[in-house]
Structures are given as C-alpha cells and as structure tokens.
Amino acid sequence: MDVFMKGLSKAKEGVVAAAEKTKQGVAEAAGKTKEGVLYVGSKTKEGVVHGVATVAEKTKEQVTNVGGAVVTGVTAVAQKTVEGAGSIAAATGFVKKDQLGKNEEGAPQEGILEDMPVDPDNEAYEMPSEEGYQDYEPEA
C-alpha cells in the first residue's frame, strides 16, 4: 500500500510541476504579447503594419512553449490582441483601416495563427491545408 501511495504522490508532483510550467509559459506569452502591443503603439504610420505582424510573430513563438489545451486559448487571445492593436492603430490615425491585415508588401496577414497546427491532446499534428499553395516548377 505504501508503494501505491508513494507512486500516487510522485504522479501528483509531476502534474503540479507540469501545471506550473504551463502557467509560466502562458505568463511569458502574455508578456511578449504586451511587449508587441507597446511596440505597435510606438510606431509611426509606416511601421504600424509591420508592428502588428511582430506582435503576432512574438506571440506565436511563445505559444510553442505552452502545451496542451492552453495553446488553443493563448492563440485565440493573441489573435484578438493583434486585431485590437490594429483597431487602436486605425482609431489613433497611425494607419488607414484599409491597410490593416496586410503586410508591407500588401499581402493579407489573416491566418497567421489560424494555420498553425495545434492539437490540445498532444496526440497528432496535421499540416495546414494546401489550398493556398501553388506547385513550383523550376525553369529549365
């Protein structure tokens, strides 16, 4: 019985440690998101679009440190934060509304985080759909 109880105690310690790591990862992701939003706020009209992409990228980098179902929630929060940063930029006159959601080359930025393969159960990952990809044929 002692062996059984000791095993359960060790398992509990492992769960607590994993929860603490997840909590730490979420806190880091939130900190990076805040950094990115402050970065966007300090940019001029020309830099705002690039700044919004930076927020998304920093958040995406930190999301990889967070495991399990938390990833889905962090990704949703990050996307809403990026959308909010863009709205703030438009409201303050840093950028025109028609410039939001495009990178410096004018290509749409939507789907940055949505296409990231995420499995809350950590069982399997699927690649994003290939609808947006084109076949590449090298020139002879």
Rank of each mutant, 00 (worst) to 15 (best):
G86W: 15
E28S: 09
T54L: 14
I112Y: 05
G73L: 13
A107Q: 05
D2A: 01
G93W: 13
K58N: 04
V70P: 01
A76Y: 14
E123Q: 10
V74K: 01
F94I: 06
Y133S: 03
D119S: 03
D98N: 14
D121S: 10
A17G: 03
G132T: 13
G51E: 01
G86A: 07
G111K: 09
Q134N: 08
M127K: 11
A27E: 02
T72H: 14
V66S: 01
G31M: 15
A107Y: 09
K96I: 03
E137Q: 06
L100P: 13
K6N: 07
G106L: 05
G41I: 06
Y136N: 04
A89L: 12
V74H: 01
S42Q: 09
E110I: 05
A91E: 05
G132W: 07
G36Y: 09
V3P: 00
G47E: 04
S87D: 10
M5F: 03
E83H: 06
I112V: 12
N103T: 09
M116Q: 15
G84T: 15
G67N: 05
I112A: 03
K80W: 13
V71Y: 15
A30L: 11
A27V: 07
A30N: 00
T22D: 00
E105T: 12
G47F: 14
T44W: 15
V40S: 00
Y125S: 07
Q79R: 08
K96Y: 15
A78Y: 15
E61Y: 02
V55Q: 01
N103E: 08
P128N: 12
G132Q: 12
V3F: 05
E20H: 11
E20W: 08
A18E: 00
K45Y: 04
E131R: 08
E13V: 03
V52L: 12
T54V: 10
D2P: 01
A89K: 03
E114D: 15
G68K: 11
V70R: 01
A140C: 15
T75L: 15
D2S: 02
A107F: 06
V82T: 06
D98Q: 07
V49Q: 10
Q24G: 03
L113M: 07
G47Y: 13
N122A: 04
E110H: 03
A27D: 01
A53G: 06
Y39G: 02
E35H: 06
Y136M: 07
A69I: 14
A107T: 09
Q134P: 11
E28F: 09
A91R: 05
N103W: 14
G25H: 15
G93I: 09
N103C: 09
L100H: 03
A76W: 14
E130P: 10
A27C: 10
A17N: 08
F4L: 06
Q109V: 11
G106P: 11
D2K: 02
T44C: 11
L100V: 10
S9N: 15
K12Q: 04
A29I: 13
A30Q: 01
A91T: 05
G41A: 11
V16Y: 11
Q99A: 13
E131H: 08
M1L: 00
A90N: 13
S9R: 14
G132I: 11
T81K: 02
G7R: 15
E126S: 04
Q24N: 07
A85F: 10
P128T: 05
Q62N: 07
T54K: 05
V118T: 03
S129N: 04
E110Q: 05
K102Q: 02
E114T: 04
A76C: 09
Q79G: 04
A124N: 04
E114K: 12
T22Q: 00
G106I: 11
E105Y: 09
Q134S: 07
A76S: 06
A29L: 07
L100A: 13
V37S: 01
L8M: 05
E13L: 02
K58Q: 06
A89I: 12
G31K: 11
F4G: 00
E130S: 04
S9L: 11
T81M: 13
L38G: 02
G111N: 14
E104N: 07
K23S: 05
Q134Y: 05
M5I: 00
A76D: 03
V55I: 15
E57C: 03
N122P: 07
D119T: 10
A91N: 08
G68W: 14
L100I: 09
D119M: 10
T22G: 04
V63R: 03
K21C: 03
V74Y: 14
M5G: 01
A85Y: 10
A107D: 15
S87I: 15
T54Y: 15
T22V: 07
Y136R: 10
Q99I: 13
L8K: 00
K102P: 13
V49F: 10
P117D: 07
V15Y: 14
Q134D: 07
Y125N: 11
G14H: 15
G93C: 03
K43E: 01
Q109W: 15
G67Q: 10
K96A: 13
V70Q: 01
A19N: 00
E28N: 02
G47A: 15
V3K: 01
V48E: 00
E46A: 10
M1H: 00
V118P: 13
G7Q: 07
N103F: 09
A78R: 06
M127H: 06
Q62K: 08
I88E: 02
G51T: 11
Q24C: 03
V48Q: 00
G7S: 15
D98C: 13
E139Y: 12
T22P: 00
A11F: 12
I112E: 06
M127D: 05
Q79T: 05
V82H: 03
E114L: 07
K60H: 05
D121T: 10
V55D: 00
M5N: 02
G106V: 05
N122I: 07
T33V: 14
K43N: 02
E104V: 11
V52E: 00
M1R: 00
I88F: 02
P138Q: 05
A29M: 12
T33E: 00
Y39F: 09
G132A: 13
E20S: 02
E130F: 11
A29V: 09
A30D: 00
H50A: 13
A69W: 14
S42D: 04
I88S: 02
T75F: 14
K58S: 06
S42M: 09
V55L: 13
Q24Y: 15
D98W: 14
L100K: 03
N103I: 04
T81C: 08
G67M: 14
I112S: 12
L8H: 00
M127G: 03
G132P: 04
E104P: 07
G86Y: 13
V63P: 01
E123W: 11
K43F: 13
K96C: 15
V66K: 03
T72L: 13
G41F: 10
V15R: 00
L38N: 04
V63E: 01
S87A: 12
K10P: 00
G7F: 05
N65H: 04
A78F: 14
V77G: 03
K60L: 12
Q79E: 05
N65I: 14
T59E: 00
D2N: 15
T59V: 10
V71K: 06
G36N: 14
G31E: 07
A19M: 07
V15K: 00
A76G: 05
V77R: 03
S129A: 07
M116I: 06
P128S: 05
G86N: 14
E130L: 07
K21E: 00
Q24S: 08
M1Y: 01
D2H: 07
V52F: 04
V95I: 13
V15C: 06
Q24T: 12
Y125E: 06
V52K: 01
